[in-house]
Design a protein around this nucleic acid. Structure first.
Lengths: 199, 199
DNA sequence: CTATATATTCCGACCGTTCGGTATGTTTTT
DNA sequence: AAAAACATACCGAACGGTCGGAATATATAG
């Protein structure tokens, strides 16, 4: 609790990951931080402003994926690393109290939907992020084909999209069902399509 | 505008598909229907109640998928039918003004998230729906293996989940990017994993 | 057919509460 | 003492919801 400003940001992030912007009230933010309204408005000029910063922070820390850090040896090792990073993310989500027991009580889509609606610049950033993710996967697929790791007539980008969408769909089910511990069930799915693309 | 009650329900559905429960105000519902507050509260006892009915309607009429109506000749014809049904759903969404030009301005996840939060009975219904979908896909996969259409060592349920999650992840991207016309891009993805599972 | 009684549908002013935000402090730090 | 950090009382607007009654439709009676 050294840095009050950061404390407010962390608390707000936690709240905005649990409910939508409208559902999170100033009263709630103030009470959860243990501060007062005066303190809050000393650091932020409005609820919108703290939301903006929360989104920025979340993007750079959570969503932004440094794909260059993942193994580029093979497609298999790439998605294995990818899955490992995902599990780590869930673990760090648990550390800030977003997982109680086995139950997920966070949903980053709240943040995403609100950001898309409220922050005009966000949509472009998000599309860029998506494009980067697609490019990273596509590159790996391309080199996996070159190396002979996989051998499929399906266009590289389609294979990349298959991995991405499969992961996203799985993640959505995870969030809705609230079962954080089932993250490991994604690997068999990736293994399955991987086998298919090898043939 | 014959049946006022139904008119309110349709209008509310449209609104609840565009924003969250909290974001939709009574003022908005009343003004969009062209009625008055008194008229609204003559038919519904609260905003929550109309939401409940909207959710019921949406589930039973929109979202609910009659898998028995899809072709059971083969896995390929099954998912082809599935995709066709999806396209029809988008078309009917367009008919009630949820698609302007090429842009999706609906997001059924608003409805889903709110329903999961507010309606205790909903989670079970939703899980049941998911289970039914999984069962339908799994059955098809099983018989596709028996008939020799596909020949994969991957468990039937995993294959089923791959199709489902891939579709969901794709749908999520569609909604977020707002590009309703790109629905057809899912077929190549399905074809891709289908080829893989045949080997 | 008309007139009256009764039920339904709809209206909009109004209510209490909560919302985000402000003004004006008091405490703490430098 | 000056400034930064925090607290609290308060504000107007917007919220969901209520209420008495007007308008309209339907049923009944003469």
């Amino acid at each position: 609790m050294i840095d009050t400003r950061e404390h407010i940001l962390n608390t707000s992030l936690k709240l905005f990951l649990q409910k939508s912007f409208k559902e999170v009230t100033m009263k709630e933010i103030v009470e959860t931080t243990g501060l007062s309204k005066g303190a809050f408005y000393h650091y932020f000029s409005s609820k919108e402003k703290v939301f903006e910063e929360v989104v920025d922070f979340f993007l750079s820390d959570f969503m932004k994926f440094d794909f260059s850090n993942l193994s580029h040896d093979s497609l298999k090792s790439f998605y294995s690393d990818y899955l490992k990073s995902m599990e780590e993310k869930i673990q760090s989500a648990g550390k800030i109290g977003l997982v109680t027991g086995d139950t997920f009580n966070a949903n980053h889509y709240f943040l995403l939907f609100d950001a898309l609606k409220m922050l005009p610049s966000f949509k472009d950033k998000h599309l860029e992020h998506n494009q980067n993710e697609l490019n990273a996967w596509t590159e790996i697929v391309t080199s996996a084909k070159k190396s002979g790791e996989i051998n499929s007539k399906i266009p590289d980008e389609l294979i990349a999209k298959t991995f991405i969408y499969l992961g996203d769909g799985f993640g959505m089910h995870l969030i809705i069902d609230g079962a954080a511990s089932k993250m490991h069930e994604l690997k068999p799915l990736f293994d399955g399509i991987y086998m298919g693309f090898r043939a």
